[in-house]
Amino acid sequence: MKTLTCINCPIGCLLTVSVDEHENQCIKGNLCKRGIVYAKAELTNPTRTVTSTVRLRNAAVSQLPVKTSSPIPKGTMRACMLALKYIEVSAPVAAGDVIIENVCGTDTDIIATRSMPAITDLHA
């Protein structure tokens, strides 16, 4: 048996998942249907959006915030973080710019989430 907390609303139902004698999954503890949908997704393919930063040169701050353009499988998060570790970007950057294409074979891009002018532009 496994337990999960539904995150779709502040009630936060504690969902218990068990398998009956016919190998059917049985989800209990939800107060509404969204709990079932959530538990199924969490059990089959849990995904998360990764947000982090990469090094930024030629800008007023040294870090550029980035995210995966869509949620990626939970199991690939570590590899994704590692891929970000050695990236360095130079301003100017616009929010939405692709920083890494198809990160770790997830079919998801890493994109910038903040626009940063180059320092030279700032003084122009």
Partner: peptide, 12 residues
């Protein structure tokens, strides 16, 4: 904190 943060920031 929000439930969602407990799950996705701690439980995960």
């Amino acid at each position: 904190g929000l439930k969602r943060n407990i799950v996705q920031c701690l439980d995960d």
